[in-house]
Every structure is written in C-alpha cells, then in structure tokens.
Lab assay of single mutants.
Amino acid sequence: MVVWDEDGFQGRRHEFTAECPSVLELGFETVRSLKVLSGAWVGFEHAGFQGQQYILERGEYPSWDAWGGNTAYPAERLTSFRP
C-alpha cells in the first residue's frame, strides 16, 4: 500500500508492506490519499489501531470520501494500518 499526506496523491509518500501502528512515527501527521496495490488492508482513524476502521480493497483512494464517504461517522484521515 502506498500513502500520501495530501489529497490527490500529493505531498509526502510512503510505501507499506507490513502493519503500521502510527504514521506519526514516520513523520506524517495524517494520511489523506492512498493506493492499495494488492490484497486488502484495514485503515484506522487513530494510532494504535483505534477509532473508526475501514476495509481498503485493491484500488485508488484519492481523498477521505473515497474510503469513508458512506458512513455515519466518516474519518477524514487515517493514522494506522494493518494488512
């Protein structure tokens, strides 16, 4: 999975191949867009795999509404991930 700290695949970029309990440890404040290259990941609103969670299947997510636009409580950012 590849993530960016700005919408539209802009800004700082990082690629994950294993779980990440906090993007803050990588110098990111948040993740605002992402691409899942294969498989599925779970993205969490807060560090430590806490808060609202989203199943992220293979594909592109250019902004928060692409992963959470249909929920009652959409998270505008993700800060931890698990494959």
Score class of each variant (00 low, 15 high):
61 Y>N: 02
3 V>C: 07
63 S>R: 11
45 E>V: 05
59 G>A: 05
65 D>N: 15
78 L>M: 08
76 E>T: 09
58 R>M: 10
18 A>F: 06
28 F>P: 02
75 A>K: 12
32 R>C: 07
45 E>S: 12
20 C>I: 09
52 Q>F: 05
28 F>L: 10
14 H>F: 15
12 R>M: 05
50 Q>S: 04
64 W>N: 08
35 K>Q: 15
2 V>Y: 09
48 G>S: 09
2 V>M: 06
72 A>C: 13
62 P>E: 13
63 S>P: 02
66 A>H: 07
25 E>H: 08
28 F>Y: 12
4 W>E: 02
6 E>W: 03
12 R>G: 07
44 F>T: 03
42 V>L: 07
6 E>M: 07
38 S>P: 04
71 T>F: 15
74 P>H: 15
19 E>I: 01
54 Y>N: 04
43 G>Y: 03
44 F>V: 02
19 E>N: 02
52 Q>A: 13
63 S>V: 07
30 T>I: 05
45 E>A: 07
15 E>I: 09
35 K>W: 00
18 A>Y: 10
54 Y>E: 00
55 I>G: 07
58 R>H: 05
35 K>L: 00
25 E>S: 10
61 Y>L: 01
67 W>M: 06
59 G>C: 01
66 A>R: 14
77 R>V: 12
12 R>Y: 04
41 W>C: 03
23 V>M: 11
25 E>I: 15
13 R>G: 05
55 I>R: 09
35 K>A: 05
55 I>T: 14
44 F>S: 02
42 V>E: 05
57 E>K: 11
39 G>Y: 02
45 E>C: 10
38 S>F: 06
78 L>A: 01
22 S>P: 02
34 L>T: 04
42 V>P: 02
38 S>K: 14
71 T>W: 08
48 G>N: 09
25 E>V: 08
16 F>E: 00
76 E>V: 13
32 R>F: 01
74 P>L: 12
38 S>Y: 04
26 L>W: 04
62 P>K: 13
12 R>C: 06
32 R>L: 01
52 Q>P: 06
23 V>Q: 04
42 V>G: 00
62 P>S: 14
63 S>C: 12
35 K>Y: 03
8 G>Y: 07
12 R>F: 02
10 Q>I: 05
66 A>P: 04
21 P>K: 15
4 W>G: 01
76 E>Y: 11
21 P>R: 09
48 G>C: 13
73 Y>E: 15
57 E>C: 06
39 G>T: 00
7 D>T: 15
67 W>V: 09
78 L>I: 11
67 W>N: 06
75 A>N: 15
6 E>F: 03
11 G>M: 00
9 F>W: 01
79 T>V: 14
22 S>Q: 04
37 L>T: 06
25 E>A: 10
75 A>H: 15
27 G>V: 04
35 K>I: 05
13 R>H: 09
66 A>V: 11
45 E>Q: 14
56 L>R: 00
75 A>R: 08
23 V>S: 03
2 V>C: 06
54 Y>Q: 06
48 G>A: 10
60 E>Q: 14
24 L>Y: 11
5 D>Y: 06
28 F>S: 07
2 V>G: 04
9 F>S: 01
9 F>A: 00
28 F>W: 13
49 F>S: 03
68 G>N: 12
32 R>W: 01
57 E>F: 10
32 R>I: 00
62 P>H: 10
44 F>E: 03
36 V>A: 02
68 G>P: 06
39 G>I: 00
33 S>P: 01
55 I>Q: 08
47 A>C: 12
61 Y>G: 00
3 V>S: 01
73 Y>Q: 14
74 P>A: 13
58 R>K: 11
70 N>F: 08
27 G>E: 15
70 N>P: 11
41 W>Y: 06
38 S>V: 08
47 A>Y: 07
11 G>A: 01
36 V>R: 00
57 E>T: 10
